[in-house]
């Protein structure tokens, strides 16, 4: 590759658009996620923008204080390989990242491996080609893979969340490459997740900053309590931040068959949350033995040593959605802790 030239603000002229040449160009500037990218040419970015205002600021992202303009987000969506029709999901997820309650500064600054999980809800799942069925957390589907990757590239480039100076995660986790799934409406016995949190729109996007999914399986039961006891056991551990930060949420990704078992027993989504709140518990004494610093709600701090305490301070922090296909594997997704999930109506 020969010399590349900066052509003024926001544009570069490169003389080698091959994967190798582009990779070298990015590496020189400490850009990219380590994988080959699609060149963000003016033509491709123009198609991604679809005639909307390129200078609209969707969010301001720390720690760099980067302005996530629609153009900057579109550039990263092109690089990630997004088909243009999924761009509204990327844009909505970026808006969510900018919400104060999500605490992106902390998400990027922490040594915890936290990654933002993007969950797509509603009509957009089918219309845009997201996979909410077998293998919903990936790989193998372009929409899931590239939306998750685009969000990460926005974090790397616009937010400046490069490992080290901008992302202090001690070990990181694989979901920092791409972390996107979709709600399986066809198999969901309850109202859409986004309706349950007050977002009355045909489609929506949730961002939850947490760990990789922790699997639990139950192949045998037609007893929802026996199934959820396994979820509770996966939650009741001192190895997650939810143990020492009581304000953290849990996302419970039920597979369709486990959700159907709950529904057949007459259980609602809230019943599932309530069961886990009551059964994912450990003695206060053990929490105190394990941690010197406990960011707990006052009522938990006042508990006697023998009292069994939940893995989060209120039942509403246990959030249930349905994803995946055939087979009896579900998951729990712990939180980083000092963050709140954000669900927004899908917007262009």
């Amino acid at each position: 590759m020969g010399e590349n030239a900066q052509m003024g603000e926001g544009l570069h002229e490169i003389d080698d658009e091959s994967p190798e040449g582009l990779y070298a160009f990015l590496a020189e500037r400490e850009w990219g996620d380590g994988l080959p990218v699609v060149a963000p040419t003016e033509e491709r970015v123009g198609v991604m923008l679809a005639g909307l205002d390129p200078d609209e600021v969707l969010a301001v992202l720390p720690p760099r204080g980067g302005s996530a303009t629609r153009r900057a987000v579109a550039v990263n969506a092109v690089m990630a390989g997004c088909p243009p029709e999924v761009f509204p999901v990327v844009a909505t997820a970026v808006r969510a990242l900018g919400e104060q309650r999500l605490n992106l500064r902390g998400v990027n600054a922490t040594t915890h491996p936290v990654a933002p999980l993007v969950i797509v809800h509603g009509d957009a799942v089918e219309e845009m080609g997201f996979n909410a069925e077998v293998g919903a957390f990936g790989p193998g589907n372009r929409a899931n893979a590239t939306v998750g990757r685009a969000v990460r590239l926005v974090l790397l480039h616009v937010a400046g969340a490069r490992p080290g100076p901008g992302d202090a995660a001690t070990q990181g986790q694989p979901s920092k490459y791409a972390y996107c799934t979709a709600e399986n409406r066809a198999a969901d016995p309850w109202e859409p997740y986004h309706h349950s949190v007050g977002v009355d729109a045909p489609s929506a996007v949730t961002v939850h900053c947490g760990e990789n999914p922790h699997n639990f399986h139950d192949m045998e039961s037609d007893d929802i309590e026996r199934i959820l006891d396994k979820a509770a056991s996966a939650m009741a551990t001192f190895g997650v931040n939810n143990a020492c930060i009581s304000g953290g949420e849990w996302f419970i990704g039920l597979c369709p068959e486990h959700a159907a078992t709950a529904d057949a027993a007459g259980w609602t989504r809230d019943d599932v949350s309530a069961y886990l709140f009551e059964h994912a518990r450990l003695p206060a004494r053990e929490f105190r033995r394990q941690f010197d610093l406990l960011a707990w709600a006052p009522w938990m701090s006042d508990a006697a040593d023998d009292e069994l305490l939940p893995m989060t301070e209120e039942v509403g922090n246990i959030r249930v959605f349905v994803t995946g296909g055939a087979g009896k594997h579900s998951c729990v997704i712990p939180s980083w802790g000092m963050t709140r999930s954000v669900t927004l109506a899908l917007e262009p």
Partner: peptide, 16 residues
């Protein structure tokens, strides 16, 4: 042949 590409980092926000 050269190609023009966009910068992926974008501008800093006002007051950053």
């Amino acid at each position: 042949m050269s190609t023009t590409i966009h910068d992926p980092a974008g501008p800093l926000a006002e007051g950053a």
